[in-house]
Amino acid sequence: MIHAVPAAHRIAEEAFAREFPQATVWNVLDDRLLEDARHAGGLTGPLRRRMLRLIGHVMDGGAQALLLTCSSYGEVVDTARTLWKVPALKSDEAMFKAALAGPYLRIAVVASTPPAVPAAVAQLEALIPALRPDRPLDLVTALSEEAAAADDPESVARHLADALYAAGGTDADAVLLAQYSLTPARDALADLVGVPVLDGAGAAARELRGLLSPGEQPVAPAATVAS
C-alpha cells in the first residue's frame, strides 16, 4: 500500500486486518505527495514519475498486489497497470464499483481536501459506461476543509454533513467518502444524513482478497501506497 498521508496507513491497516487478515501488508509513505500536488495545482510530470518510482520500488520488492490509497494520484495506477502485471487498485475503485452496482440514483461524494473531489469524480464517471450504461445517476459533490482540521470523528461528520446541506446533497441515496482519512467519521455521518455511507478501504481489502485467492496459496506482501 502506498500512502500520502499517515492517517491512511492506519485506516488501511485496520481494513485489511478485518477483511483480509491473511495478507502481509507492506506500507510505503511519502507524506509530501499531497502537499506538493496542492502547491503545483495538480499532478505534474515530476509528481507522476515520483509515484511511479515508489510503485517500482514495491514491485521490485515482490509485491503481489498494489493499493494506492491517495485518490489524487489514482490516474498513475492506469500507467502502472501497463508496466506491471499484478492487481493494482486505485484508492476508491472498489467502493465506486459497489456504489454503481447498488440501487442508488443520487450519490454524494464528500471530501476534506480540494484535490480529492475532481479525482474521485473522474474515477467514478470513468466506470459508469461499463458498469451502469443504462441506469441514470445524479452526482453531487461536497467539500469541507473544516473537516480536515477537526480533531474527532463526530466533528468531522458534522462538518461533512454541513457541506452536504450547502451543496444540496441531503437527498442523496448514498454518500461516498473520497478519502481514507475520513473513514473514522463514517458511522457518525451515516447517523446524521440517514443514508448509507461507503468507504474505500474496506471495499479495496475485500476486492484484493478475492483477486489474490488467499485460500489457495500463501499470500505475499500486498503493497499499499498512501498519500
Results as ranks from 00 to 15, higher is better:
Leu127Tyr: 05
Val76Pro: 04
Leu160Lys: 00
Met59Gln: 12
Val58Asp: 04
Thr170Lys: 05
Ala23Asp: 07
Asn27Arg: 06
Asp199Asn: 09
Leu34Ala: 11
Ala94Phe: 12
Ala116Tyr: 08
Tyr165Arg: 13
Gly61Ser: 10
Ala204Val: 03
Asp30Lys: 04
His9Cys: 14
Ser71Gln: 09
Ala149Ser: 09
Gly45Lys: 15
Tyr180Cys: 07
Pro214Ile: 05
Arg38Pro: 04
Pro133Tyr: 02
His159Leu: 00
Gly41Met: 09
Asp92Val: 11
Gly210Ile: 00
Ala4Asn: 07
Pro129Ile: 13
Ala116Cys: 09
Pro221Asp: 13
Ser72Cys: 11
Ala142Gln: 07
Ala7Asp: 04
Phe20Glu: 07
Leu212Phe: 03
Gln22Thr: 15
Val156Glu: 02
Arg32Thr: 02
Ala7Ser: 04
Leu66Gly: 07
Leu33His: 02
Val5Met: 09
Leu34Gln: 13
Tyr104His: 14
Ser144Cys: 11
Ala142Gly: 11
Glu146Thr: 01
Ser71Val: 05
Pro21Glu: 07
Thr24Ser: 11
Ser91Glu: 13
Ala111Val: 07
Ser91Gly: 14
Val219Ile: 10
Ala178His: 00
Thr82Gln: 12
Val25Gln: 11
Arg209Gln: 08
Pro21Ala: 15
Asp152Glu: 06
Val109Ala: 14
Pro133Glu: 01
Ala37His: 05
Ala88Phe: 10
Arg106Gln: 10
Arg158Trp: 00
Val58Cys: 07
Tyr180Ser: 12
Ser181Phe: 06
Glu146Phe: 12
Leu192Ile: 06
Glu125Thr: 09
Leu208Val: 14
His159Glu: 09
Ala17Lys: 13
Asp199His: 08
Ala147Leu: 02
Ala101Leu: 14
Ala203Asn: 00
Thr69Gln: 03
Ala37Gly: 04
Leu131Asn: 06
Asp78Ile: 15
Gln179Ile: 03
Ser213Leu: 09
Ala40Asn: 15
Leu47Thr: 01
Gly61Leu: 11
Ala220Arg: 06
Met51Glu: 02
Asp138His: 04
Leu192Ser: 08
Asp36Trp: 04
Pro46Arg: 07
Pro21Asp: 14
Cys70Met: 11
Asp78Lys: 13
Ala130Val: 07
Ser144Phe: 05
Leu105Thr: 14
Met1Gly: 03
Lys85Phe: 13
Gln179Asn: 06
Ser71Arg: 09
Ile2Tyr: 08
Tyr165Cys: 12
Met1Tyr: 09
Leu66Asp: 01
Lys97Asp: 09
Arg50Thr: 04
Glu35Met: 10
Val156Phe: 02
Ala188Gln: 00
Trp26Tyr: 10
Leu100Phe: 01
Ser213Asn: 15
Gly102Phe: 02
Ala172Val: 11
Val156Trp: 00
Ala12Val: 15
Leu137Thr: 14
Phe16Ile: 07
Leu66Met: 10
Leu54Trp: 06
Arg49Ser: 10
Asp36Ala: 14
Leu176Tyr: 03
Leu192Ala: 07
Pro214Asn: 06
Ala88Lys: 04
Asp60Trp: 15
Ser181Ala: 15
Val195Trp: 03
Leu68Ala: 12
Asp187His: 12
Glu216His: 12
Gln217Pro: 07
Val121Ser: 06
Asp138Asn: 05
Ser213His: 15
Ser71Asp: 13
Ala166Pro: 04
Pro133Ser: 01
Ser227Lys: 05
Ala111His: 03
Ala40Gln: 15
Ala163Glu: 08
Leu177Trp: 08
